[in-house]
Amino acid sequence: MADRTYPDFSRIVPIDTVGVEERVARLNTRSIKKSSKVQALKLALSMLDLTTLEGMDSPGKVRQLCRKAVQPIAGRDDLPRVAAVCVYPPFVKLAKQELRGTGVNVASVATAFPSGHAPLPEKLDEVRRCVDDGADEIDMVISRGEFLRGEYAFTFDEVAAVKEACGPAHLKVILETGELHTLELVRKASDISMAAGADFIKTSTGKVTPSATQPVTLVMLEAIRDHYYATGRMVGMKPAGGIRDAKTALRYLVMVKETLGAAWLHPDWFRFGASVLANDILMQIVKQETGVYTSLDYFSKD
């Protein structure tokens, strides 16, 4: 932890909110039809981090979710499986057991999710435990209090330490953008997280309103693009929370396609953190195939 090279924390990347919103509005006029729609729906399904993060989570609930992740519609092997199942740390072992050999990753929200208020050693212990239990991906939260009072080095060190503790596991850094309030701070938190080693940057815990929004996501995608050009390193993006329907998900994919290009249109580089989104995507896929909407009662609610 000793000799870290910090980025220039005094640097502010100006972001014009009006301009960002206009760009999003223009991207939203893209009309996705026919085969390009089916392709995008399946892509979105394969990018899902199927999530359950409730106080009332139980082994039964996690088991059900894992089944859904591997085979989103019973009896249909032609649909892609989702990218990962995201659970609280106590359920990592179980999820790993359920998902072994399926290609679906286990992600866990370590580091005193969702507030992040815990001493660093405890957070690191939690991360190591999750990885030991078999987590492939760690979703950490930054300490927003420290970040907002300008302790940027604290944020950098925190992310770097968690990254180290992750070992082989991939690190997603949750900025909790709903608590950062300005797009310039979103950009700053993105830049610091990426410089400190984040494999993914992620908008939200889902516990704070607003969670993922398109303007915030666009700003983070642009940060990823600038980071790529500056370092040659690709960083992934995960909007989470608030994306409830397929139409909105496709709008996010349009943003990725036109900001970062084809390389990021892959579950390795883009994820949706969501729970109810899955069924709407499935319903739209079936609608494209049959021409009619099927009742939601035909899709499992887990």
């Binding site: 640097r11 996705i32 039809k33 026919k34 085969s35 693009r225 500056a230 036109e258 290009g261």
Partner: peptide, 25 residues
Amino acid sequence: MRTPEPTTDGLKLDFSGIWSYDPAP
């Protein structure tokens, strides 16, 4: 401190492949 302009040598984004939009007349 001046932040140097990033070097772009050899780095390229691909905006064509994988997923394209069907005609929407």
